[in-house]
C-alpha cells in the first residue's frame, strides 16, 4: 500500500485528506506541523509523498520544505503543497525548493486523489 504523509495543523483537514485517500488505496500518516513531520521522516517514516500545508505553527510548510531538502536522508522525498495561499511568490518559492505541486484549499477530493496518484507513482 502506498504511504503518504499529510502535514496540517487542522485535524479536520487531515481527516478530510484521509477520507479522500484511504478509499483510493493509500495509507496515510499524519503530522500536526512541519517540525512534527521532519521528526517523523528523520526517524525513518518512509512515504512516497508528503502533502503539506503552508501556514502552520512551529515550522511552516515552506520552511519545512527547505529543511527537508537540506537533510540528506530525506532530501529526495516528493512534496506537494496543500494550502489556502495562492500568492505567486509563495508558489515560486515552493517550486524553487523542488515541490512537485501546489493545490489551493478548499480542494475537490477527486482532484487530490488524481494528483496524489500521479505524484506518488
Amino acid at each position: 500500500m502506498t504511504k503518504v504523509l499529510i502535514v496540517d495543523d487542522s485535524i479536520t483537514v487531515r481527516q478530510q485528506v484521509i477520507a479522500a485517500l484511504k478509499p483510493a488505496g493509500f495509507d496515510v500518516a499524519e503530522a500536526a506541523d512541519g517540525e512534527d513531520a521532519l521528526t517523523q521522516l528523520l526517524a525513518g517514516l518512509a512515504v512516497r509523498l508528503v502533502i503539506c500545508d503552508v501556514n502552520m505553527p512551529k515550522l511552516n510548510g515552506l520552511d519545512m520544505l527547505e529543511r527537508l531538502r537540506s537533510e540528506a536522508s530525506i532530501a529526495s522525498t516528493p512534496v506537494m503543497m496543500l494550502t489556502t495561499e495562492g500568492q505567486p511568490e509563495y508558489i515560486a518559492r515552493a517550486k524553487a525548493l523542488g515541490a512537485k505541486a501546489w493545490m489551493v484549499k478548499p480542494f475537490k477530493p477527486e482532484l487530490l486523489v488524481s494528483a496524489v496518484k500521479k505524484l506518488s507513482a
Binding site: 489556502t84 495562492g86 500568492q87 505567486p88 508558489i91 515552493a94 517550486k95 515541490a99 512537485k100 505541486a101 501546489w102 493545490m103 489551493v104 484549499k105 478548499p106 480542494f107 475537490k108 482532484l111 494528483a115 500521479k118
Partner: peptide, 10 residues
C-alpha cells in the same frame, strides 16, 4: 493569485 481548488503541477 492561484484560485481555490486549483492544482498547479511543477
Amino acid at each position: 493569485a492561484a484560485e481555490e481548488g486549483e492544482l498547479i503541477l511543477f
